[in-house]
Nucleic acid binder design. Structure first.
Lengths: 122, 122
DNA sequence: AGCAATAGTATACAAAATGTCACTATATGC
DNA sequence: GCATATAGTGACATTTTGTATACTATTGCT
């Protein structure tokens, strides 16, 4: 059962997929975009801890990988909207599975599941 | 629509999950272990491109996260076997989903699915 | 005696990812 | 005039990740 090509860069399909969503903030960005189009600062506010710089970079990489669409409106206070592409949508189930897994298996979240009134996911 | 805690380290459950399998080789290691217990060098041979050091590190981190079990046999030529823990098994579906996604959406694999017999690339 | 295989560790270093901080431009509100 | 908000960019520092190489110890093979 050979699963990997001899010695290519994205060693495995698994690796290739992780290259795409493995960035520190990419998964979270994708998750938020699952809920619909978001503006830059809107995303930023949803992700405390991310810096402008990092958010920009992660979004650009997601855009380069064809998962996210970037729409710029030439308005007076600049407006840029990010949304999932069709390809990005194909990751929906995986992102949701990762979220579910994190909630039950990452200590911090597993704990908060025990008593904290969880806010909705929609 | 608050999905993230105020400003905690593993920003989101999604992020927490990716922290765990996001390492460069972790996904692949997990994938190989899905097929059963493997010895150190066995894994190494399955993953051309990984160095001894990196494989050791990734395995130790997976062990620390409770996903992988490390069994050392005090034998003459050392033998160490790695296997998934119950917690590691909970990632099975996600790993397989990542693999499937990679196969259809990562250019390199999407191509090889079409019949390109690229078994040699130096 | 010399070599390979086992599963690593130690050291040194290079590169990539991530992070901080300051800065841009324009318009509105005070 | 100054602060705010918008969506960034540029220089730089740090952290993480990765590489190369040599080294450990034991035993079997030749």
């Amino acid at each position: 059962m050979n699963v990997c090509p001899p010695n290519r860069s994205p060693g495995c399909p698994v690796e290739g997929a992780l290259d795409v969503i493995g960035g520190k903030w990419k998964g979270v960005v994708m998750f938020h975009l699952l809920h619909g189009t978001k503006r830059f600062n809107e995303l930023r506010r949803m992700m405390p801890g991310v810096t402008q710089r990092m958010l920009t970079r992660q979004l650009r990489e997601l855009e380069a990988d064809g998962l996210v669409h970037r729409e710029v409106y030439a308005e007076v206070p600049p407006r840029v909207e990010y949304s999932l592409t069709a390809k990005g949508e194909t990751l929906r189930d995986i992102i949701l599975a990762l979220k579910a897994w994190g909630e039950t298996h990452v200590p911090y979240y597993a704990l908060s599941k025990l008593g904290v009134p969880e806010t909705e996911t929609a």
